[in-house]
């Protein structure tokens, strides 16, 4: 099932990826090929198969409720593109 340019634009927006108009067509071609390729899965009979989310049949371990972290804000914000007064700055959030 080939993806259209509009499909690619929609996916790119959901994934928050800026894609140039000339690249949209290229991605539409690539992604269509990939989706065609994975569509082989349709041929497998999985009617009685329990989906497998994880390779190991283990259960979640629980952590003790203890505070184990201290303030490392300065260190962690060394990687931040823009901070002020300890806050990460982003273009205005409109609700």
């Amino acid at each position: 099932m080939p993806l259209t340019a509009a499909d690619v634009r929609h996916i790119a927006r959901l994934a928050r990826l800026a894609i140039s108009e000339q690249d949209i067509q290229v991605y539409a071609g690539n992604l269509s090929k990939i989706l065609d390729f994975v569509a082989q899965l349709d041929k497998a009979d999985t009617s009685r198969v329990t989906p497998m989310a994880h390779p190991l049949e283990m259960v979640q371990r629980l952590r003790d409720d203890t505070v184990a972290e201290s303030n490392q804000r300065d260190l962690y914000q060394e990687n931040a593109p823009q901070v002020e007064a300890g806050l990460y700055l982003v273009p205005k959030v409109i609700e």
Binding site: D65, T66, V67, E69, R73, Y76, G86, L87
Partner: peptide, 19 residues
């Protein structure tokens, strides 16, 4: 006392991003 997936404190009112 600590967060659901980390060991940071949940106390209210700390200076921004210190917890």
């Amino acid at each position: 006392r600590s967060k659901i997936f980390s060991g940071a404190s949940t106390a209210f009112g700390a200076p921004p991003n210190t917890q």
